Simulated scan of single mutants.
Amino acid sequence: MRILKYISLLLFLFFVGLSVFVSTQKGDYDVTVSKVIKNPRGIVFNYINDYKNWETFCSWIKNDKSYQFNYPGLTLGQGGSCSWTSSSSEGSIKTITVKENESIFQKMKNNEAPFDMYWSFKDTVGGTKVTWRNKGKLDFKNKVAAFFSGGIKSVVSAIYEKSLENLNSTLDYEINTYSIKVNGITTLPGGFHLKQYLHCKQKETEKNVSILVSRMEYFFDKNKLRSNGKPFIIYHKYDRANNDVAFSVCMPVKDSINIMPGSDIQSGKTASYTCLKTTLVGDYSHTQKAWKKALDFVAKNHLERNRSGQIIEVHKVGRKDVINPSKWVTEVYIPVYPKAIEVKEEAATEETTTAADTPIEPVTPANRKLVQPN
């Protein structure tokens, strides 16, 4: 018994000494990791620039299913932020400065411990070189974990290196896997909606659509409004030659809603008209490919565009429904005058692209079919 008491006392003294030793060690660290991501710089930058995408690649999030995120109206670009709670942590992150396609600076708190994050993006052979620098201070719990795992820098580096590996594999599949299908002529029903208008350059369209859709969804959640469908985009102008785009991000509602004067949210109403429907399954970055396939269909089948109507995109399944971009569904509606048309079978075939494939060109069978307006 006396031996057991001595052993217990020695173990107690050992752990007390270890605790004192670890607590007196500096928890400060400055770690930089880099990796070549096999995607263009713009795609990589835009993906990292939106906190709603971080759940798909951050290793500490993917390994802990207890994380619960709170996303405000703005999660993308300068001023974007989010917060979270989990079984082991509580924190928040905010983007301080952004240099488009070049760098991002963010400040994060995790269990009150502050961190600074710096991202840089450079074109290189094979894709984009992403450099991720993290400066921070570990709390006692993480210092103990780091002590038994080879040191602070070793632990932090491993976490961020794994996250960049996840980012590379996620983008390789999630962004590059998509399919486009021309569904045929249908009737797009009209109705009431709330909308927010924006005028911007063509290259800024995808980013701004994402921002405004998030803001509109947040507006509905905050004001406890009930939507009557999925968010959609009305394109009032799309002038590629002059790099000029005007659009409204809309949320359908059952009845007309009066909005206070001075608000950037307005009430609106769309009329019902006949359209050519095309469906994109995949990331929003492929919407212009869906437009092209639809417009080629219009030209090949001698359909007459209805210029009094506007091209509409409906986000049937979006990031609020599922975090995987490869599973998002966007419906593109191009107004045309209703009539029966004779078209080749290729117009209704599906174009599918995955990370391992190149785009599949539609084939042209000998038979033809009659497509009637719905």
Rank of each mutant, 00 (worst) to 15 (best):
H199C: 06
N258C: 02
S267W: 03
D283N: 14
N208C: 02
M260Y: 10
I312C: 05
I323C: 08
L212P: 01
S256H: 11
S263W: 07
N258L: 07
R319G: 08
R307P: 00
V253K: 04
I312H: 02
N242Q: 14
V281E: 00
Y273M: 14
K277G: 01
V314N: 04
F247A: 04
D244A: 12
T287E: 00
G262Y: 12
L280E: 01
T287C: 01
A299F: 09
Q310F: 15
Y235D: 03
V281M: 02
A271F: 15
C200P: 02
V317D: 08
F297G: 03
W328Q: 04
G190F: 15
V298Q: 00
D244F: 10
D296K: 12
L303S: 00
A290C: 14
A241V: 15
K289H: 06
E304L: 10
Q288Y: 09
H199R: 13
K224T: 08
E204M: 08
V281W: 00
H236Q: 13
S272H: 10
V317S: 05
E313A: 03
V329H: 09
T287S: 01
K195Q: 13
S256A: 10
N324A: 14
C250R: 04
P261Y: 08
K222L: 12
P261T: 07
G262F: 10
K254G: 03
L295K: 11
G318E: 05
M251N: 09
P252A: 06
N301D: 07
V298N: 00
P252Y: 08
G191S: 13
G190R: 15
V209A: 02
F247V: 05
V209G: 00
Y235L: 08
K289D: 05
V322D: 15
I265W: 02
K230L: 12
K230R: 15
Q266I: 07
I265N: 00
S214V: 01
Y284G: 05
F219H: 06
T279D: 01
E217D: 12
I259G: 04
I257P: 03
K316M: 11
S326N: 15
A294V: 06
Y235N: 06
S272C: 13
S210V: 12
L212C: 00
S285R: 14
D264H: 09
N228V: 03
M260C: 03
Y273I: 11
S248N: 07
N208Q: 10
W291M: 04
I259Q: 05
S285Q: 14
I312M: 11
L198R: 09
N208K: 09
N324C: 11
D239A: 10
K293D: 03
V249H: 01
F219D: 01
K201D: 08
K289C: 01
S272D: 13
Q202F: 05
R226W: 02
T278V: 12
H236T: 10
N301C: 07
G318A: 08
K293T: 05
L295A: 10
V209N: 05
K316S: 12
R305I: 15
S272I: 14
T274K: 07
R215N: 09
R215E: 11
P252E: 06
